[in-house]
């Protein structure tokens, strides 16, 4: 049984396109200076205060083991039941409808919470399962 089309916010980071369910993307903000977190994994660039809460910034390129790309200027703030996180973005494309659920990009690690390729007007993208990825990161990965 296939799912109907679902709105996703599509953004670019490190030469790749990613998408998060639109209802989970709460806002896009310019990247401020970050506070480093002791003992954090390399993909956790730091945190910043925004509207009275602390937002952790995740570099998606480092998270999936690609070479770091420091060209990002913005972050996409993603909110799920258990918390909030912000993904680095070089460019925010917009909202596109994505139909169905493409296969996982990997069996383990962060790629197990990304699916693709999903076709959007600007190219192929990886859709992120934000609930699963947050749970994975919260386990200290």
């Amino acid at each position: 049984m296939s799912e109907g089309p679902r709105g996703h916010l599509v953004f670019a980071c490190g030469g790749s396109l990613y998408a998060v369910p639109a209802e989970r993307a709460s806002e896009v903000v310019n990247l401020p200076s970050l506070t480093r977190v002791p003992g954090a994994a390399p993909h956790l660039l730091g945190v910043f205060a925004h509207r009275g809460e602390v937002l952790p910034v995740i570099d998606l390129t480092r998270l999936i083991g690609k070479p770091a790309d420091e060209a990002f200027r913005r972050v996409v703030v993603v909110r799920v039941g258990r918390g909030v996180m912000a993904f680095t973005a070089t460019k925010v494309i917009g909202v596109s409808a994505i139909e169905g659920a493409p296969p996982r990009l990997g069996e383990s690690g962060a790629l197990a919470f990304m699916h693709g390729p999903a076709r959007v007007p600007s190219g192929d993208c990886a859709t992120i399962d934000p609930e699963g990825l947050l749970e994975f990161l919260a386990r200290g990965r």
């Binding site: 506070t35 003992g39 995740i58 947050l134």
Partner: peptide
């Protein structure tokens, strides 16, 4: 935040905002 709750072995207790700077 939940995604960094285990950073530094769970030694993080929170953050304070002082003069615009965030301190872990």
């Amino acid at each position: 935040p939940a995604v960094i709750a285990r950073a530094a072995g769970g030694a993080l207790a929170g953050f304070v905002l002082l003069a615009g700077d965030l301190w872990p």
